[in-house]
Amino acid sequence: MEISAFVLFWAAIFTGNILLTYFLGMCSYLSISKEIESAFGLGIAVAFVLIVTSALNWLVYYYILIPFGIVYLQYIVFIIVIAAFVQFLELVIERYTPSLYYSLGIFLPLITVNCAILGVGLFMIIRKYSFIQTLAFSAGSGIGWLLAILMLAAIRRKLKEKMVPAGLRGAAISLIITGIMALGFIGFSGIVQIQ
């Protein structure tokens, strides 16, 4: 059954959130969520890179990897494409929009190794999405990731003034919060189901 791109978009944000359902992209999610400002910057950067690299990888997969029969190399190829694109993006931003570079540029190297980006690339292949579906799915995933990190950053800001047991400070409490948020997101699962 062909799922419409519109449904995919919303499903990727809520019922199949790349971070809260699949727990992908955790490292930068945990380390850059101390302040809302930087969490937002990173989230935007991830969303943008996700959309563009997924589209690029889709083209590479269906027009290079399949015709030449080297599908088994998809992991390596995808990673190279992501890394090259992020590097390229960094150069472009640094050159033409210095102000954006100073707010987003520092996050770009982190994105190269963000599992959410590779994860979306692999999901779109396994689930046999069309190009349009891929765009919608990656856009939804990017926005979903941004939403998740923003929520964590907002909660962590409140948490700063609260007494957290010493053994739970930092990543530990963040993971517990993430788990509770993930439970909350299960509530959306009745709306649409994509996988």
């Binding site: 290079i64 030449f68 080297i70 190399l73 190829v77």
Partner: peptide
């Protein structure tokens, strides 16, 4: 395959 990979 090696050639293709290198080409990419």
């Amino acid at each position: 395959d090696i050639g293709l990979m290198s080409a990419i």
